[in-house]
């Protein structure tokens, strides 16, 4: 069991032979009524890669992320996780998966939300143990022991019996991460995990995410934290109006991209963050 280390903040060297695709997104489009929020998106996330989705609000980042575990239904194209088609059957095109098949798919895909979404009537430990019992069928004692280890891993072993209302935002988000990693997902999706946090609490959550990345977790992260994207991501995708306007290593996107929308976005970002 790995523990939270203080040093794992450097980007990982991409290990050779790790290039099996975890997620492949091909020609995915989606509309809300007449508003086309995703237009013909192509994106591949390899095993153990960290891919950050950045871009202005309303560009479709969160919607794309939510399509990956089918919390949002996509209209055209296909998304595959470890080769399995997300949300639809292989046999009949556009026929929805049964609830059971969808659950089997989702249990390997963890999601961390902007608003944490902890269950307020359960303690930190109960929040983490719940799906272990309900989904993985563990007995209560084993689930509690496993949950305890996960909370320890995110540095919250002292808060096991606290209800979410008694935890700070950063602590709540770390419980939410523990709840996900307890399920040993193959892939983790982060939907603006630090956007609802007070500035001084952002660091502790990013640190946990860095540790996960260093452990080889495959992660897709929607974020406004450009520092995290630059330092931790293997690939960065810049979305604008539902399209991927730039894609590449952080260096390629942040420093070498000639795409005017990227430059304008980064300039706005820098202006806002300098005073």
């Amino acid at each position: 069991m790995t523990t939270v280390s203080e040093t794992a903040s450097s980007p990982r060297s991409a290990t050779a032979g790790d290039a099996a695709p975890m997620v492949t997104i091909r020609g995915v489009s989606k509309s809300f009524g007449t508003n086309e929020v995703l237009r013909d998106i192509d994106l591949t996330v390899n095993k153990s890669e960290v891919v950050c989705l950045i871009g202005p609000s309303g560009s479709g980042k969160s919607t794309l992320l939510r399509c990956v575990n089918f919390l949002e239904v996509y209209d055209r194209g296909e998304i595959r996780i470890e080769g399995k088609l997300v949300g639809y059957t292989e046999e009949t095109p556009r026929r929805r998966l049964s609830n059971r098949d969808l659950r089997d798919l989702r249990r390997n895909v963890g999601m961390v939300f902007q608003q944490f979404n902890l269950w307020p009537h359960m303690t930190a430990l109960e929040n983490v143990a719940e799906a272990l019992v309900q989904v993985r069928g563990m007995d209560k004692a084993a689930a509690a022991a496993h949950a305890r280890r996960m909370l320890d891993r995110v540095g919250l072993s002292a808060k096991t019996d606290s209800y979410p209302a008694r935890l700070s935002g950063g602590q709540q988000q770390r419980v939410a991460i523990a709840r996900v990693i307890a399920m040993e997902p193959h892939l983790m999706l982060f939907d603006e995990p630090t956007s609802a946090l007070d500035p001084e609490l952002v660091g502790e959550v990013l640190q946990v995410m860095r540790d996960l990345a260093a452990d080889g977790m495959t992660m897709v992260v929607v974020t406004h934290e450009m520092g995290f994207a630059a330092n931790v991501a293997d690939k960065v995708a810049f979305l604008d109006h539902g399209r991927i306007a730039a894609f590449g290593t952080p260096r390629e996107v942040f420093h070498e991209s000639t795409e005017p929308r990227v430059q304008q976005f980064l300039q706005t970002y820098h202006e806002r963050n300098s005073f």
């Binding site: 209800y163 209302a165 008694r166």
Partner: peptide
């Protein structure tokens, strides 16, 4: 579980 408001919890869901 809601009766103890978080000391810093200005942005918490609860």
């Amino acid at each position: 579980f809601l009766t103890h408001a978080s000391p810093q919890g200005s942005s918490t869901q609860t």
